[in-house]
Design a protein around this nucleic acid. Structure first.
Lengths: 152, 152
DNA sequence: GGTGCTAAGTTGGAAAAACCAACTCAGACT
DNA sequence: AGTCTGAGTTGGTTTTTCCAACTTAGCACC
């Protein structure tokens, strides 16, 4: 139920995790980013208990990460489909960063099963820090600094 | 206990979450990235139950995200300090991506309390997709593609 | 050399969340 | 009328988490 304590935090990481930090949520988003839209798709792909899936989809919809829309395939009764919103699609970066970290630091013997590539050029892409001019900056060259809004 | 089912997955995201996906872990890492090293620092800052903190630190150490080292301040008894490894420091990218998403999509009325800046120039930085040449690419232009290792 | 202090835990019991199997419900199709 | 399927709900068990109290080890002071 998207731990409300965290949603009020002044820390953006805690607030993100208030929405996304429960078990299964990131895996649901991974599936959604790769095209899953239906309850049964998530359930079968993940092996998640249906009551938990119901709860997770509800919080994702509640916080604007996904929408729930009725749709009807011809010759089928109306169903509900879950689609990522713009906010949800922006999580591609978070998912990509997790994927990249897992590739490197929790490797599987067969190597990566998914790679990130630029659509047109087909060249490899990765997640990194970028400055205003769109140039990559090394991780060590980025500092997390307190703003004026930082509490005392 | 770092759900072993996920650690064997061929999906790198699932493997990452097998190590990092339990409650509190990302917040522990956030604190670690901002300089916390001691048990009590994490406990007091997060309000986490001590038994859960013990368990989380143990899995982070087990999977090479942090190290546990005895150290001694003069005039104090020897204690254990927890430090991020290189693998742990690379999670800055994941944490940064979560932070950025929270800033934008789960905003707090006071605005962000932390911002990402390039160390020398002091200019803002963000997390993004980058191609081989170090140039940022839009999220829409990045595809997640299956490799030969993708299971049937 | 006993008492108190503090950091880093451990332990035991209560509460919350996740898991699992079985069941419901509604429309389409036969 | 009966069957199938997707999308859930329900009830009971197991696993995690939470919380408060307890332990342990070394230092400092008297």
């Amino acid at each position: 139920m998207a731990t409300p304590k965290m949603l009020d935090s002044t820390c953006s990481i805690a607030r993100s995790l208030g929405v996304l930090g429960e078990r299964w949520t990131f895996l649901i988003l991974r599936d959604a980013l790769s095209g899953s839209t239906r309850f049964a798709q998530f359930k079968d792909s993940l092996g998640i208990a249906p009551d938990v899936l119901t709860a997770r989809l509800a919080t994702l919809v509640e916080y604007g990460v996904m929408t729930r829309e009725p749709y009807q395939e011809p010759g089928s009764r109306p169903r509900d489909a879950y689609h990522l919103t713009d906010a949800g699609r922006e999580l591609k970066l978070v998912i990509g960063a997790l994927q990249q970290w897992g590739d490197r630091h929790v490797p599987h013997e067969n190597g990566p099963t998914i790679e990130r590539r630029v659509r047109d050029s087909d060249r490899p892409a990765h997640v990194g820090f970028v400055d205003e001019s769109g140039r990559e900056v090394g991780t060590e060259d980025v500092a997390f600094l307190r703003t004026a809004a930082y509490p005392a």
